[in-house]
């Protein structure tokens, strides 16, 4: 069984911007360990000389020409935003400088 510590769960949760309670941390640690172990079983099914696949179709060099296509209007772009102001998406202040 992989060891998923509560601290690791908290770290992952903060990276994913998900608020978790202490109970959830304990529960998730157990569940994540099972998931990691299950995925690791793939290693048993293939030998070491099989290259990891990131794309199922052997295709390369697919490009488009550098041509401008129509964009959305500002109104369309913001239509799905929960909040907007001054033609921009409005989001909560973030405690981090960009």
């Amino acid at each position: 069984m992989s060891e998923i510590t509560p601290d690791l769960v908290r770290h992952l949760a903060s990276l994913a911007r998900i608020l978790v309670t202490d109970e959830e941390v304990d529960q998730l640690a157990g569940e994540l360990a099972v998931i990691v172990d299950s995925v690791a079983m793939v290693n048993q099914a293939v030998s070491g000389d099989v290259v990891a696949t990131s794309h199922p179709i052997p295709m390369v060099n697919v490009y488009r020409e550098d041509v401008i296509l129509p964009s959305l209007t500002q109104e369309q772009a913001l239509s799905g935003a929960p909040e907007s102001a001054d033609g921009r998406f409005k989001v909560n202040a973030i405690l981090d400088e960009d």
Binding site: R64, D66, V67, I68, L69, P70, S71, L72, T73, Q74, A77, L78, G80, D86, G87, R88, F89
Partner: peptide, 29 residues
Amino acid sequence: NTASKMFCGCANNFGSEPNTNVCPTCLGL
């Protein structure tokens, strides 16, 4: 300084009105 963006056809242009050079791809829809 390409005419269009890296992964979509929106204009790569400085100084446009906000959110006017955007499309489903660069908005991650």
